[in-house]
Simulated assay, not measured.
Amino acid sequence: MPLVTKWTGREVKALRESVRMSLMEFAEKLGVSDRIVSRWEADGERASIRMINQAALDTLLAKADKDAQGRFVGILAADDAPIHSIIEPGSGETSSGDYVKHPGDGKLMAHVPEGIYLSGADSEPVWVDDFHIDTFPTTNADYARFCAATRYAVPEHWENGRCPRDLYDHPVVHVTWRDATAYAAWAGKSLPTSEQWEKAARGTTGRTFPWGDQKTAAKCNVRETGIERTTSVSRYHSGVSPYGVYDMVGNVWEWLATATTAGRHELRGSAFTSPLFRGVPAVPNDAYDTMLDDDTGFRCVATPEQMMPGGQ
């Protein structure tokens, strides 16, 4: 099932069209007036939707049949890419929809089963044990909860120590590798190894990008997309990986557990500041673990033991 971390008028209109309801029918399902739905759609991404209505939209999407869910992704993909198609997983790969919440930080995680995947530019077979990976990068809202719980220093660019409300569902940035590791330890998780991250991004069959082999910059937030800032972590529905993981290319570079030399660790995935070719999941980057920037964040992974309440 597709996921939406923050509903705006853009997603509301896509859902209404995908379930093929009139404004009045759709509003009745949600328990609001048709004027409210009309205003949401007119406001687009600027729409402010109350949490109780966000929950009702989550429920309506979850209860929609598979065809409607497919149409929902396709309608949103029309904004993201010139080729309006739904990417199907290859043989032996899982599709999006099998998500569970981690008992530590409560984030949704996707399961990546054990087995061999084709790694690197030469597609060498590599075995990886099964694990779960955050469906979305760590957001500002996630990081704010961590800082509040541990009194950890907040990112330096937050005004008066608080993240702007309109960036809650954007990836946290201005975090060092050490900051990312501290969050992971608090949550009872780890940073991904390069092998874990690459398999979650590419699947098992050696595809170039999470969505396939097409060089389609509109499926992610990279330099060619022209947005020039971070975006909501759930924006690019047409760019998800075979395991249903979002933003594995673009938006922000992601810190990994894998060290390259003393004091340096891998980064992967590219960012809104970098061209699409830098985001090829098989191609590593690295930086000093004290580096922080406006285009660098992270996500976490968990072993089966770490998925258990109180597990480490």
Rank of each mutant, 00 (worst) to 15 (best):
E25K: 08
A78I: 04
D179P: 02
L23D: 11
P192V: 04
P155M: 10
A262F: 10
L256R: 01
K101L: 12
R207T: 09
V233N: 01
S96M: 11
M51T: 12
K189D: 06
N140C: 11
H170E: 05
Y168C: 13
H132W: 15
S241I: 03
V283W: 11
G188Y: 01
E41Y: 06
D179C: 08
K189H: 11
R178G: 03
R16L: 06
R39C: 07
K107R: 15
A271Q: 01
E93I: 07
W197A: 06
A144C: 10
W158R: 03
V112K: 00
A200W: 01
F131L: 06
W197M: 02
E156K: 14
A62N: 13
A27F: 09
E156N: 12
C163M: 10
T8P: 03
W127M: 15
C220F: 03
M307H: 04
M308Y: 08
D169S: 15
K6F: 08
E17A: 13
L108G: 08
T204L: 08
V283I: 10
R151M: 09
G203E: 04
E17K: 15
Y143I: 03
A184K: 02
T273V: 14
M24D: 15
R178A: 12
A68G: 07
S38E: 13
E93H: 03
Q54H: 11
F136D: 01
I36N: 10
T5G: 14
V73Q: 09
V233E: 00
T176G: 05
R202M: 04
F72Q: 00
A271R: 00
N285P: 01
H174C: 10
G188T: 04
